Amino acid sequence: MATYDLIVVGAGALGAFHAYHAAKAGQRVLLLEKDQYPIGATVRNFGQVVPSGLAGRWFEYGRRSLEIYRDIQSQTDLTVRANGTVYIASDSDEWVLANELYDRYQAIGYPCELLSKLQCLTKYPLLQPDYVVGGLFFPDELSVEPEQMIHRLIAFAQKKYGVDYRPGSVVVDCQSNYGGAILTLANKQRFQAGRVLICSGHEVRLLFPEQLADAGLVVSKLQMLLVEPVAGVTLPGNMLTGLTIRRYESFQECPSYASIPKPEHLAELQKWGIHILFKQAIDGSFIVGDSHEYADATKAEDLGFHTQDYINQLMLTEARRIVTFPLEVRKTWAGFYSQTKAEIFEYDVDENIRIITGIGGKGMSSGAGYAEASIREMGL
């Protein structure tokens, strides 16, 4: 039976970065993924690394994540592009919040710049002039290609640090013993390690279902659209808009947030958790979205795996209010991630087995930095 220092179950961003940091620290690491390749939240998102939208320790993890992405990108191509992030305010209330967030980040030395309406339209000529009041720009933030990044990260961890990666490995049992813990796969193959870390996303039924059922985990379903490239239209970096300013945690901590009104024309959009983001892929297409629907993690099927045309049309209508170029939809999809009111679910089954899941929508922006701190905390 093969023996390792650490076995990580789940090869999404959270699991893969834990495996990477542990292996970099000299540990013998086995990374197991139940599917032939990761298909969860890590690949069904915008690929935006935007610490500016996070709050508390997650902002600090995100800031560290920027450094980690850049360090790996200097050694191999993770598809990282350093074109920054802009938040476009569409009314005076959103502009107040943008200014307040600017002041806070200036005070702690996180680079950002306020853009006037004219500066926004000059830098981003694809914007509808009537939409824009001003912008808040973060030059250090990054974007990646979500369907490629995780595969390249795992390949790099394999090649440089010897991570043993085994996709298509469904773990059906995990138990501690005198030497650590033993995992059993569906094909009866067994592995042993001093420590086991389970990063299983919104999968709550295969391993430790009772503990996960009591974790207060909620699954969020997000709808996203891929829009065809348009000749001559480019978008450097990540573009987030007024509904994002009204939603993200960093803005919620601004002094004026609690007092800003909720305009009636945004009510239906906010009912479906819609905020409009744009990111251009390397091939010129645009990812546009997204929406949020919720269900208890033990009843995730209630959300369905379809996308609702009504929600897509709400997003497209709002997106057309923001940008001038035609939005011809190539495909739509739903993404799923788990979250918890406690920010993340960290649970020690015993001294050898730990579960970490429920990071919500923060994984791409803060997962690299969080995993580094987590591995350090585990003493690996």
Rank of each mutant, 00 (worst) to 15 (best):
H306M: 12
A267S: 08
H21F: 07
Q27D: 13
A13S: 14
L121R: 09
Q308C: 11
P125I: 09
V163D: 02
I68W: 02
Y257L: 06
A2E: 13
L66T: 01
Y105M: 05
E372V: 04
A25E: 14
I245R: 03
E253W: 06
P111D: 03
S291G: 06
L126N: 06
V230S: 10
V219E: 06
N99P: 15
C120I: 07
Y20D: 04
W58A: 00
E301I: 08
I198N: 03
N238I: 03
T184W: 00
N177D: 15
Q313N: 14
V86E: 10
E372F: 05
L54H: 01
G232T: 04
Y4Q: 14
S200P: 07
A98G: 13
I68P: 01
L54E: 00
V230H: 11
Q158W: 00
Q280D: 11
W58V: 03
A11E: 05
Y87A: 15
A41P: 06
K159W: 00
M224H: 07
A215L: 05
G47E: 07
F191T: 01
S92P: 12
R205T: 15
L316H: 00
M224A: 08
V233S: 09
F208N: 11
L118R: 12
F278K: 03
Q192P: 10
E351C: 14
M239C: 09
V323W: 03
F156Y: 07
I7P: 03
I274Q: 01
Y310K: 14
T184D: 02
I276C: 05
L14H: 00
K117S: 08
G289A: 10
G40F: 01
T79R: 09
P209E: 08
Q48T: 13
V227E: 03
P125M: 08
R376F: 07
Q270T: 06
W333D: 11
S285P: 12
R247N: 12
I375F: 03
E377D: 14
